[in-house]
């Protein structure tokens, strides 16, 4: 009924940006996790999830993002987010995710903040 989430990755020396397009449900979350774990296997420790192309998520998809955050904490890495809709950002705050993952309004500020 809904299209599979599309995931693209851009690696730029010390920071890997994961772009999503579509609904982050359980399958979408798994797609993101697959991309994140591939990057972690390649020693990437600084991941940015750009959700500009995602307008809706569900809690099953977010629970998979929490697994990625847990993994990043284990390896002293970090997962950050940018370009969230106000509702997705509010949901992350309701869940307390913002304590463990930085949220940036746009990619430019994220790249600047994460490179500092």
């Amino acid at each position: 009924m809904t299209e599979m989430l599309k995931v693209n990755v851009d690696r730029r020396g010390g920071l890997a940006v994961i772009y999503t397009e579509g609904y982050i449900n359980n399958q979408g979350g798994e797609e993101i996790a697959r991309a994140a774990y591939d990057l972690i296997s390649d020693d990437e420790k600084n991941l940015l999830l750009n959700l500009k192309g995602t307008k809706i998520v569900n809690s099953i998809g977010i629970s998979i993002l929490i697994e990625i955050i847990e993994k990043m904490l284990e390896i002293d890495g970090r997962l950050s987010f940018c370009c969230l809709t106000p509702t997705i950002e509010k949901t992350f705050h309701i869940m307390g995710l913002a304590q463990y993952a930085q949220i940036f309004p746009d990619e430019e500020s994220a790249v600047s903040g994460l490179s500092a």
């Binding site: 809690s59 099953i60 977010i62 629970s63 998979i64 929490i66 697994e67 955050i69 847990e70 904490l73 509702t87 509010k90 949901t91 309701i94 869940m95 307390g96 995710l97 304590q99 463990y100």
Partner: peptide, 23 residues
């Protein structure tokens, strides 16, 4: 659900009601 506990728990799920009440 509490994020500190969920980060360590085997299951990360169980957020639905909290999200509904928050929104």
């Amino acid at each position: 659900p509490i994020i500190e506990e969920k980060l360590k728990a085997a299951s990360k799920r169980g957020w639905g009601l909290k999200i509904i009440k928050g929104l």
